[in-house]
């Protein structure tokens, strides 16, 4: 399954790119995170503390146990600081 994965703020900086297309069989967001962590140290660094991260699945805030099936876009970012 092909997914677009987006990174924002310091997650983007640690990983070194704003978006990428990933081929994955992950069942949940947490599985996808595990897969990414195993890739390279920069991913391990970005995903070291999940409590410091938020995730959006198809542009809606979601939990890390959200399913990935039939999803087209997943975004990882730190807690938002708007306003």
């Amino acid at each position: 399954m092909k997914l677009t994965v987006l990174y924002f703020a310091w997650v983007r900086e640690r990983i070194g790119l704003p978006r990428e297309t990933i081929e994955t069989d992950a069942a949940t967001v947490a599985d996808l995170v595990e897969e990414l962590r195993g890739r390279e140290p920069r991913y391990e660094l970005a995903f070291a503390d999940l409590s410091a991260l938020r995730v959006a699945v198809d542009q809606e805030l979601a939990d890390f146990d959200a399913p990935v099936r039939d999803v087209t876009e997943i975004a990882f970012f730190p807690p938002m600081t708007g306003g």
Partner: peptide, 21 residues
């Protein structure tokens, strides 16, 4: 402040730092 996807970064002469929630 905490549910719209914006992130602020402060830039100073000493460097740049993301604003923590």
């Amino acid at each position: 402040k905490s549910r719209a996807p914006f992130w602020k970064k402060e830039v100073t002469d000493a460097g740049a730092e993301w604003v923590a929630a």
